[in-house]
């Protein structure tokens, strides 16, 4: 297995692939360029990104690239599928909670104070209009989009598909959002470490995962202090505040990258009581939740992910 690591999207990217060395080197470089360009397109922290331009186009038609259009179309689909727990239009709430710059900048300079005066009635995400024929988007006045809960999973999947053209088996890990294609030679699954959300230096256990996607959402990552209060980046759309949940992290295994990332976030926000309602019998999704004591909880099919000690 060959590895290629770099930093993008404010996180660590790991590409892993098996195949002919010359083809892998070319595949790694092509994939890195794709991820860098995707960050230029989807980041809300870059003033020149396509998403920033969309957010500045409120009340007007915006001609989008096929990539941005596809991700927003997926976002609308998952908004309905998660009964609104996944909602990319929480950007105003996210900024109010202090996450108005990249997490690297917040860690250096601190977060802005809570600006309650800016709380206004905001439009619903389903009011966003997508014109399929022309790829035009109409963003209602007062709406701001953050694709942080879906774009990374989508990018990881597209990057893995790209890398797979030059590899026999490959994996793309975008800060814990993984997309896996094929199986390493001589193995019957990929071995993925499940990080302990209370101590990222350690793993809680190892998971056996087949081709598909894995994503984790955690309330211990991307945290900051705002007016003496600890905040995190997972906004509960029902309250407009950082989610209060009885789980520390949720890991989802699903066929697609976007599905895994969206449901990891939605299940973490839902917590133990509402999770089954969010899943709504979706048998394609396997999840594992970690509670504050480090105990693991999961859907019945999650036992297949563990080694024989279960």
């Amino acid at each position: 297995m060959e590895y290629f690591e770099f930093r993008a999207m404010n996180t660590e990217i790991v590409l892993a692939a098996e195949g002919e060395p010359d083809k892998l080197a070319s595949g790694f470089e092509t994939t890195r360029i794709f991820i860098d360009r995707s960050e230029q397109r989807f980041s809300r922290f870059l003033t020149t990104s396509e998403l920033t331009r969309l957010n500045c186009s409120q009340g007007e038609w915006f001609e989008a690239s096929p990539e941005l259009f596809e991700v927003l179309k997926l976002a609308q689909h998952y908004y309905h599928e998660t009964q609104g727990l996944f909602d990319p239009s929480i950007l105003p709430d996210l900024k109010r909670a202090g996450y108005d710059r990249s997490i690297d900048e917040i860690r250096v300079h601190g977060a802005n104070s809570n600006r309650k005066s800016e709380i206004n009635e905001k439009p619903e995400f389903e009011d966003l209009w997508l014109e399929e024929q022309t790829h035009k988007i109409w963003l209602p006045v007062g709406m701001g989009i953050d694709l942080g809960g879906i774009a990374k999973g989508w990018i990881a999947e597209q990057a893995a598909i790209m890398l797979a053209r030059d590899a026999n088996a490959c994996a793309v890990n975008a800060g814990g959002d993984l997309c896996l294609i094929g199986i390493p030679e001589g193995q019957s699954y990929w071995e993925i470490g499940l990080e302990d959300p209370r101590n990222p230096e350690k793993n809680l256990t190892l998971l056996k995962v087949g081709p598909g996607a894995v994503a984790t959402s955690s309330v211990t990552k991307r945290t900051w202090q705002q007016e003496g209060k600890r905040q995190h980046h997972l906004i509960d759309p029902r309250s407009g505040e950082p989610a209060v949940t009885d789980w520390v992290s949720v890991t989802v295994v699903a066929p697609q990258g976007a599905t895994a990332e969206v449901f990891a976030k939605a299940l973490l926000i839902a917590g133990s009581e509402k999770s089954e309602h969010v899943l709504a019998g979706n048998s394609e999704i396997t999840f594992i939740a970690v509670d504050p004591q480090g105990r693991l909880w999961g859907s019945p099919n999650s036992k297949e992910l563990f080694y024989e000690n279960l």
Partner: peptide, 20 residues
Amino acid sequence: FQPLPVVPQTNFSLPRLRTG
């Protein structure tokens, strides 16, 4: 949903592919 009584395993080397 079921509790998963996994014994914490912290003595193996950290694989490069992790989710957290």
